[in-house]
Design a protein around this nucleic acid. Sequence first.
DNA 1: ATGCCAAACTGCGTTTGA
Length: 254
Amino acid sequence: MRITTWNVNSLRVRLPHVLRFAEEQAPDVLCLQELKLSQDAFPEEELRAVFPHLEWWGQPTYNGVAILSKLPLEDVRRGFAGWKDDEARVLSCLVGGVRLWCLYTPNGQAVGTPKFLYKLEWLGHLREDLDRFETGTDVVVVGDMNVAPDDLDLWDPFKLDGQILCHPDERGALQRVLDWGLLDPFREKNPYANEFSWWDYQKMGFQRNHGLRIDHTFVARHLLPSVGAVTIHRDVRGWDNPSDHAPVSLDLKR
DNA sequence: ATGCCAAACTGCGTTTGA
């Protein structure tokens, strides 16, 4: 089973990219973030032809998440249990025997701002949502996490030191999520890789490889032997009129 | 110190993203 996460930065604009990616890379489950469209503007017909099982949570202008699947989706939930939040950032479900989260973590804007505090609070509620499940559960958490966990996930750790997306508070909040019992199989399999999943549109970010690794596929510890590969589809960032994020695929042997 | 890019909204510029 291949599970892919991709922040598309407007599904309206990126629908052709999604269809092309689905054909070329054949994900079984495609988790999308930043749809930037309302619930009724979702391109259901076009996607249903490729992915019979669709769930989405739209919102005008901002946010929006979707799970497109070739396998049936069960027990679909919006948001985190026990926390009311109107921002469309969280979908979770049961698919192919795994408990899956599709997440769009708040960006945080700038360190110390109200949005930064919301981001930390949000990650705290993610941990609480995970805590509803026992450690042995087959959990997979994917999405635009908006945190680069390690300096290896940054194009310039000195220039970016202490800034948004890699501030110690964000890394700490993400670590508390991982402490539920999750691993980052990309890092496990590529301990020294200096690869990125997002590159700034500005200042020739992609051409100069000025990027960050902020899109992740986390799995419950015991699933690590089942992980075949984690692939960052860097080439997709080089397509015409691309999203600023590349898709990331998790291949699970099961 | 700021815009540099891209997208959405109703706009003829502003806000947000990362």
